[in-house]
C-alpha cells in the first residue's frame, strides 16, 4: 500500500544525515587533551553546528573589578560559587554550574560574562580548567 510515509522514507535515504559527529567520529575521553591535539594539528575535527546567539556557556570572571559583595552567591541555585574570605573574591566551579546566568544579571560590576565556550565536558570535575580562580 503506497502511503505518504513510504515516499518520505525513500526521500530520506538520499538526504544529508542530521547528526553531526563533532568533534570526531568517536568522542574522546578528555576534551582538553583532544583540544591540545587539535591545536598542534595532530587531530582534524568536523566543524560544529552553529551555536544560538544567546548561548550561555562557560563563565568568564573578571577578578580585578570584583568588589566581593557576595550578591552572586545569593542567587546561584547550585552553589557553584564559593567565597574566598581572605582574598574577598569568588571561586567558580564550572562542573556545578547550571548556566542560568543569574549571577551575571545581579552583578553590580558586571564581572561575569557567559561566553560561547561549550567544550567543557571532562571526566574530572575538579580539573584545573573547570575551576575559575582556584
Amino acid at each position: 500500500m503506497p502511503t505518504a510515509t513510504i515516499y518520505t522514507l525513500i526521500k530520506q535515504l538520499f538526504t544529508k544525515k542530521a547528526t553531526n559527529p563533532f568533534p570526531v567520529k568517536y568522542t574522546p575521553d578528555n576534551m582538553h587533551a583532544a583540544a591540545a591535539l587539535i591545536g598542534s594539528g595532530k587531530l582534524k575535527i568536523n566543524p560544529y553546528v552553529r551555536i544560538p546567539p544567546n548561548f550561555r556557556g562557560k563563565m568568564s570572571y573578571d577578578k580585578e573589578s570584583c568588589i566581593g559583595c557576595k550578591l552572586c552567591l545569593k542567587v546561584c541555585p547550585s552553589e557553584a560559587l564559593v567565597f574566598k574570605e581572605e582574598e574577598k573574591k569568588v571561586k567558580h566551579y564550572v562542573a556545578r554550574c547550571t548556566f542560568c546566568g543569574q549571577c551575571a544579571d545581579i552583578c553590580p560590576k558586571d564581572c561575569f560574562v557567559l561566553t560561547d565556550e561549550f567544550l567543557i565536558a571532562g571526566t574530572d570535575k575538579y580539573a584545573e580548567e573547570l575551576i575559575i580562580n582556584p
Binding site: P52, P53, N54, F55, R56, T98, F99, C100, G101, Q102, D105
Partner: peptide, 15 residues
C-alpha cells in the same frame, strides 16, 4: 526555543 533563549531544554527565561 534554543534560538530565543540560548538553551535547548532548560531555558532560564523567567524572572
Amino acid at each position: 526555543l534554543e534560538y530565543i533563549t540560548g538553551n535547548r531544554v532548560n531555558y532560564a527565561m523567567w524572572t
